[in-house]
Write a protein that binds this DNA or RNA. Structure first.
Lengths: 236, 236
DNA sequence: ACACAACAGCGAGCAGTGCTCTTGACTTTC
DNA sequence: GAAAGTCAAGAGCACTGCTCGCTGTTGTGT
């Protein structure tokens, strides 16, 4: 992205505006009808243009899906980072809770887009890793950052037992070096558990796995889970 | 379902056979192409019949989806119960691990059907609760059964702290009476956390949320998570 | 100032989807 | 043998993604 500040020519400006508009409309359709029902023709109709014209701007339906994927990852990442940033840097537990709550809040307000990111893969669609891993890893990087800071500050309790087997240890070492972390294996593994568990709880809620009226106090349930997960991750 | 042992007339027999066949073909298509791509026309083609003929046996695409949903829940429930049953009844921890591993194994061998059960809801489709909650709750009932047995045997460690708020307590009480359990609030809540966490870990793996090569030792990672979750749930 | 090339939009068309309705044939029952 | 019930077929509607050839416009370099 070595773009100058402004796209020079008016053509490029108009083009960028149109693409922006297509993404906006796509986002609306996505939120209303879900990913599998996302239709380029419908977007074209809303854009006031014949369906084939949209292909001037977006290569295919899959390409539009990729754009929306990146868009959603970006919004989630922004929300999470803002929430985490609003908690004092030394309140690790508070930051962890803020992260989890921010993800949940966004997921509940944007269920279809959350489903696109963390639900069943869209059949026949494969997200291009080189464009999506960056935006897609912001949350887990944020989470690991909190744990790492806590560890470096001497505030991450060493877990009681459960040594990590060598095979897993290699994976963890790779993650540690890639993310520039200091936390030892056992705590890193527990961080990963906390990570997947937070999303597990949220997915159950968003995807309706809890029955219609099994849990009426869902906020309290999630709060309780986050509380325990923080402890599991070592945040006293 | 007040059906006699055999559907009497040869017509009813043939009809039942055809429906059976449709479900079988639907299951194959589901496994190969995913829920959103499940097409009645394709099933009809495989059945060697024109598309409209299928509507004699299955009310709609959604109805077929419901049949496949129940079918999948049943298979998962069977697998889980068999796995749990093969571990001594007093080895609560082993039973918990067997349950988790059975779910994971089934999920990895049937990703598309797992996605139908636990992934993003199919847009425009609402599973009829009166037909799906029964088969759909077998796993969680099995899990809670293990925890309850452990508790009644005095083998479920009381959690350290984290009192449960009244609002949540009411929900838990309803669950306890509905499932005929004895475990107290705090442990019940932890059981729920273990439940959602197991599925969170599995979903991440099945839905490709771990990058392509972040974790190569996935078995070990899951084993580790199950280990910790057992402890979280109170299984020493 | 003008010619040209790039671009944007159109509309027809292909192959696929879910679903409905009518028509004709076959089978069971009376 | 006639009436009733059942089944498959085919045509048709409205929708999907996507391609291609055709126009008119628009920005730009000479």
């Amino acid at each position: 992205m070595a773009d100058p500040l402004k796209p020079q020519t008016p053509r490029e400006q108009a083009r960028a505006r149109t693409i922006e508009q297509i993404i906006r409309l796509g986002r609306e359709h996505l939120a209303l009808h879900g990913a599998a029902a996302l239709s380029l023709r419908a977007v074209a109709r809303d854009l006031g243009v014949v369906s084939s014209a949209v292909y001037r701007y977006v290569e295919s339906r899959d390409e539009l899906l990729t754009l929306l994927l990146i868009d959603a990852y970006g919004e989630l990442g922004d929300a999470v980072e803002a929430a985490v940033g609003s908690v004092p840097a030394d309140d690790f537990r508070g930051r962890f809770a803020a992260l989890a709550n921010a993800v949940r809040k966004w997921a509940l307000s944007e269920p279809a887009r959350y489903a696109l990111l963390f639900g069943s893969p869209v059949p026949g669609y494969q997200a291009p890793a080189e464009r999506t891993t960056g935006p897609g890893t912001r949350v887990v990087i944020g989470l690991m950052g909190i744990l790492d800071s806590a560890y470096r500050a001497g505030k991450l309790a060493a877990p009681d037992a459960a040594a990590v087997v060598p095979a897993l240890s290699a994976d963890l070492e790779a993650i540690r070096s890639e993310m520039d972390l200091a936390v030892p294996d056992a705590l890193l593994a527990r961080g990963a558990l906390a990570w997947t568990s937070v999303f597990g709880a949220i997915s159950f809620e968003v995807f309706g796995q809890y029955g219609a009226d099994t849990f009426s106090a869902r906020d309290a349930l999630f709060q309780h889970h986050v509380d325990i997960l923080a402890r599991v991750a070592g945040l006293g």
